[in-house]
Nucleic acid binder design. Structure first.
Length: 154
DNA sequence: GCCAACGTTGGC
DNA sequence: GCCAACGTTGGC
C-alpha cells in the first residue's frame, strides 16, 4: 500500500466540496501534467491513502485524508468540448489524461499548515517541501505519513 | 535536439 | 500582485 499527497485549490474544488458529494466520493479531475498523470494511471491502487492538500489559498496545508477507491481511467472531461479541461489532442482511442476516484476518510479539525510542515526537520526531504515543487500529485513515504498523522490536532 | 518564448503554479 | 521555478511549445 502506498501513500500520496494530492493538491487542489479550495476555490476550485476543496475538501468541503468532496465532503458534500454523495458517499463523500468523487473523481480527481483536471490533472494536466504527465508526471502526475503517470502516477494516477500506473501507480495508484485501491486502498492507497493520500493527504488532501489545499494550495493557492490563505493557509496552504494538509486538510484531510482521502482513500483511492477506483484506479486510473480516462478523464471524460478531456473529451468534452464544453469543459475547461477539454483537450482536443486527447483521442478516446488513446486517452491522454486519467483520473482516479477518491473518498473522504478524514477531514481534520485544523489544517496542518505548510509553515508547520516546513518547521519539521525530519520532513525536509518531503517532495512537497522541496524547492520549486509544483507537482500536484506526489508520493509520500511511510515514515513521512506516520509522522504527519501524529501532527493531527484533536 | 536545442532553446527562447511563453504559460502556469503557488507561496508570499 | 509579484516573481521564482517549472513545464510546454514551436521554430530552426
Amino acid at each position: 500500500m502506498a501513500y500520496w499527497l494530492m493538491k487542489s485549490e479550495p476555490s476550485v474544488s476543496g475538501i468541503e466540496h468532496l465532503k458534500a458529494m454523495p458517499k463523500q466520493r468523487d473523481h480527481w479531475e483536471g490533472v494536466r501534467n504527465y508526471q502526475a498523470r503517470n502516477m494516477m494511471r500506473d501507480q495508484m491502487k485501491i486502498g492507497d491513502l493520500a493527504f488532501f492538500y489545499h494550495s493557492n489559498c490563505p493557509v496552504p496545508g494538509i486538510v484531510g485524508v482521502i482513500e483511492i477507491v477506483k484506479e486510473g481511467y480516462p478523464d471524460p472531461k478531456a473529451f468534452d468540448p464544453q469543459s475547461k479541461y477539454f483537450d482536443s489532442k486527447s483521442d478516446p482511442e488513446n486517452p491522454r489524461w486519467f483520473v482516479v476516484d477518491v473518498q473522504l476518510q478524514k477531514m481534520f479539525d485544523e489544517v496542518i499548515s505548510l509553515q508547520e510542515l516546513r518547521a519539521q526537520h525530519v520532513l525536509a526531504d518531503m517532495w512537497i517541501l522541496r524547492r520549486g515543487s509544483r507537482l500536484s500529485i506526489t508520493p509520500v513515504t511511510a515514515a513521512e505519513w506516520k509522522y504527519i498523522i501524529k501532527m493531527i490536532k484533536s
